[in-house]
Design a binder for these strands. Structure first.
Length: 874
RNA sequence: GCUCGAUUAACUCAGCGGUAGAGUGCCUCCAUGACAUGGAGGUGGUCACUGGUUCGAAUCCAGUAUUGAGCACCA
């Protein structure tokens, strides 16, 4: 006989290639089973080209693949759109580091050469990422793979920009933005606020007339060169008299006024605040209100300028201690306290972000208005639904979105400036020949590029050809894609990019197409380690999905992620969980092996008549499982769907179906057909082993046959439930096994047992006899109508069983019966309590009443039997 | 500070108005010809707490505690 253990490596490696070559993943890969009018579309959140597959990818792509494979088998024309993202800052940083290692810089080699390097890196890196994805067994339409900077998508980005520009929704202006001295302008959500142990510096600012001083407190003394006022609260009795007075800034000749503004918190610090309109968001607002001067004290790299006087040339962060030391020497520092506050960091390079006035491009917040309305009107639905709250609260506080980035890698802003007349104009051409205003031939393009998320915001429709200008139409997309696949049926992604990506797609999709881009939005949680900690390289608790695939198989990793993916809950990943599901694949392998020991080749269930009692019973259970799996998948309850499969295949098919078949070998061919059908049901979760076992049992091979992945997904047949008889059989078997434990014969073969079942026909007895005899391991089984004396007994729900014996340890039997009776009494008390309650009877629905009445009768009759048995023993 | 989660058996988690569920663990027993990555039987819970709504609450509501996340904040 062959191996006892399933070896996944052998099977996983050979199938993927065949699937892909045969174009099963493409839109018409399932042509033969497609049904009119059923379309399904889902976009792969494009992974960064800098990336390496991590466990979060494994989760998100597993879930996407499960749904895609399900829909494909269920007759949908299915598009799962793959691609990668150019990831502006991240990629540029990687390439810059490479250059640095080679002893050069991007400035030295120039923009053109730098971009060439970046494209080279992209080619290599995107290939690695998509190869790693293939190891997961995912099935996107690879022939349509896109890149957010490929030719067609460059055109769509320009199209979008020009539209918004012409509609006045993209504007350029001098505003305070988040400035990273390394990466340039950032949008609000690209800044991460972290607790920071800083200092609170109390400084004295002398009055200009020499009549004394005020004390101000600040966390950022190095910005005081940019102070253009000092403010107090208008109601602050301590300082009322000072309003309008002038102070002279320490070490500088410059004088500024003391102003009053209600923004000041009288309780905090000294109640006197320095106002630095060019380097603080609040002060910026104050500056505008009071018409103050905006003095910028350092340049784009953070180097202090002329305004800093003797400190010119120092880096802003390094300057602080130097400045404080000097101020202290001059007697301007009163005290320094420890102070915990939040500081913004760049989400890419972790550098401290500065509020900085700069001329940038913005998408006006008005662009989102209709998408918010439509979302709240229910045009798109969140799973789990509570995410709409976060979406709304963020959308409600939306500010203009800064989209220009001081990078080279990205979509260069399609705005041009005439060298002659300074006219500003947008153009979709790469190099417009002349200024449309003065016809001058010298025009210069804006050097900045767009925020990466600008192009990803278009992903749900730009990949369908929108704005692509016919580039590679009929290859990368089809002319009727927008009609077939927009809005996308579903989006699956992590909640961490709800604002970065989902919200932006919603506004852009609605704006350009008049419809939100998704019907359903499923947001999954985070994968954590077994202790519930977030995985991170620095903690060293990272689980590498590729390692897990090598160790356990893609099927096991996928199934583990799916069965753990309860909506809205983080997933704790552990070796233990992976092992359990590895055991499950082994179980399937061995079940298949058993079937094949008895029958060589099994038919497909379709068109095959299941006739044996056992076959019909398992059929009924398969029907139930099918119904449950479908219902759960339709609601994106991946964990429930996977659990149903696990329980059906292991606890029902293997533990009962296979065991019972040992008493009726004629049913095995039917069980095999049912098992094959169950493999289809399981296929979206475990694509490899199901393909393997399906062919093994069919006597075919994928190489010479059709894949399970484009067979019809099982649906519930109309067959009547036929489970009662087997419930009795199983009840009797368990009952005898329990009784055997009492005489220390657990799981050993015994000579004789009796079963007492009320009102049972002769035919049924004959049918049940071999099953019970075999599974309960009894030489001779007899049905009886009366109690058997001198026997140990067990009282079950549907029967009583007796094992005759001469020597019995009565005490253990009595103890067991007493315990059983105690439980029954509790149950009876509870049920009769409810049923005696008039209001319960009046209000409860009929089916609940009926069920409770039935349960009560059952419990009571069982209790009578238990009591009788007890009495006979005493 | 605001918002959203979580709190169920020793552990990991389902369930989210109708008698508390699974897997693991633990305790017995089993090398029987699919599988010891296995099989059989069993053990184990005031569903965080306090109120409320209801005939009925783990489930709905309010509050408290603990805990996590997001957003906004005092220079």
């Amino acid at each position: 006989m062959s191996e006892n253990r399933y070896n996944p490596q052998e099977t996983e490696n050979k199938y993927y290639k065949i699937w892909e070559e045969r174009e099963y993943f493409e839109i018409d890969g399932n042509k033969a089973i497609q049904e009119e009018g059923k379309n399904f579309s889902i976009m792969m959140p494009p992974p960064n080209v800098t990336g390496r597959l991590h466990i979060g990818h494994a989760l998100t792509f597993t879930l996407q693949d499960v749904i895609t494979r399900y829909k494909r088998m269920d007759g949908y024309k299915t598009l799962w759109q793959p691609g990668t993202d150019h990831a502006g800052i991240a990629t540029q940083n990687v390439v810059e580091k490479q250059l640095l290692a080679e002893g050069t810089t991007k400035e030295e080699i120039g923009r053109e050469a730098f971009l060439k390097r970046a494209w080279e890196w992209k080619a290599e890196s995107a290939g690695i990422m998509t190869q790693q994805l293939r190891k997961m067994g995912v099935s996107p339409a690879w022939e349509r793979e896109r890149f957010t900077m490929d030719e067609g998508l460059q055109k769509s980005v320009k199209e979008a920009f020009v539209h918004l520009y012409n509609d006045g929704l993209i504007i350029r202006g001098n505003y305070m933005v988040n400035w990273c001295t390394h990466d340039g302008a950032l949008s609000d959500i690209e800044v991460e606020h972290e607790d920071h142990d800083g200092k609170f510096y109390y400084m004295t600012y002398p009055f200009a007339d020499g009549s004394g001083s005020v004390e101000v407190a600040t966390t950022r003394p190095e910005t005081y060169f940019g102070d253009t006022a000092v403010m107090v609260h208008p109601d602050d009795e301590r300082y009322k008299a000072l309003i309008g007075k002038k102070i002279r800034l320490p070490l500088l000749e410059r004088e500024v006024a003391i102003i009053a503004d209600a923004h000041v918190d009288m309780e905090f610090g000294t109640g006197v605040v320095k106002v630095t309109p060019a380097h603080d968001q609040n002060d910026y607002e104050v500056g505008k209100r009071h018409d103050l001067e905006f003095i910028t004290v350092f340049d784009e790299k953070g180097i202090l300028n002329d305004y800093a006087g003797e400190f010119k040339g120092l880096e802003r962060l390094e300057a602080r201690d130097v400045i404080v030391k000097r101020l202290d020497e001059e007697g301007f520092i009163v005290k320094i306290e420890d102070h915990k506050h939040q500081v913004g960091h760049c989400y890419r390079c972790k550098n401290i972000v500065e509020p900085y006035i700069s001329r940038q491009w913005f998408v006006r917040k008005e662009v989102a208005e209709k998408s918010i309305e439509k979302t709240n009107a229910g045009e798109a639905q969140f799973f789990p639904p509570h995410w709409i709250n976060s979406y709304n609260s963020w959308m409600g506080e939306l500010r203009d979105w800064c989209i220009s980035r001081q990078l080279w890698w990205g979509h260069q802003i399609p705005v041009f400036y005439c060298d002659e007349c300074e006219h500003e104009f947008v153009s979709q051409e790469d190099a417009p020949k002349a200024c449309p205003k003065c016809a001058c031939k010298n025009v210069t393009q804006d050097p900045d590029v767009l925020d990466t998320w600008f192009s990803s915001a278009l992903w749900p429709f730009s990949t369908l050809g929108w704005g692509n200008g016919d580039v590679e139409m009929d290859k990368l997309y089809q002319s009727n894609d927008m009609k077939d696949f927009y809005p996308n049926t579903l989006l699956i992604t992590g909640f961490d990019i709800l604002f970065f990506w989902v919200a932006r797609m919603m506004m852009m999709g609605e704006n350009f197409n008049g419809q939100l881009p998704f019907n359903h939005i499923y947001l999954h949680a985070l994968v954590r380690d077994e202790k519930g900690d977030k995985m991170s390289k620095s903690k060293g608790n990272v689980i590498d999905p590729l390692d897990m695939i090598n160790k356990y198989s893609a099927d096991v990793l996928r199934f583990t992620l799916a069965i753990s993916a309860a909506q809205g809950r983080d997933i704790r990943m552990s070796a233990e969980k992976l092992e359990l599901n590895r055991n499950f694949t082994n179980k399937l392998y061995n079940a298949s092996k058993y079937l094949q020991m008895n029958v060589d080749v099994f038919p497909d269930l379709a068109g095959f008549c299941v006739e044996t009692d056992l076959g019909r019973y398992m059929m009924s259970r398969l029907n139930f499982a099918t119904k449950e799996v479908r219902a759960n998948l339709d609601e994106y309850k991946f964990n429930d769907a996977a659990l149903v499969l696990y329980k059906f295949l292991w606890n029902e098919f293997c533990d009962w179906g296979i065991e019972l078949s040992k008493a009726d070998k004629g049913s095995i061919v039917e069980l095999g057909a049912i098992f094959k059908e169950a493999m289809k049901l399981l296929h979206p979760f475990m694509p490899f082993i199901t393909e393997h076992l399906y062919h093994e049992l069919s006597g075919t091979s994928l190489k010479n046959g059709e894949s399970i992945m484009i067979k019809k997904y099982p649906f519930k047949t109309k067959q009547r439930k036929e489970e009662e008889k087997f419930e009795i059989i199983m009840d009797a078997i368990v009952s005898i096994r329990r009784a055997k434990v009492l005489v220390d014969l657990a799981n050993q073969k015994i000579e004789k047992a009796f079963v007492k079942i009320d009102s049972i026909s002769k035919e049924d007895k004959a049918m049940m006899l071999p099953f019970i005899t075999r599974l309960a391991k009894v030489e001779v089984l007899e049905f009886t109508d009366a109690k058997i004396e001198n026997a140990v007994s067990d009282i079950a729900d549907k029967c009583e069983t007796f094992i005759p014996t001469d020597s019995v340890d009565l005490s253990s039997i009595i103890a067991k019966l007493e315990k059983q009776d105690e439980k029954l009494q509790k149950e009876i008390q509870k049920l009769s309590g409810m049923l005696n309650n008039e209001r319960f009877v009046a209000n409860a629905p009929e089916d609940v009443l009926a069920k409770n009445r039935e349960s009560l009768v059952e419990a009571q009759s069982k209790s009578v039997k238990v009591v009788q048995q007890l009495e006979s023993l005493k």
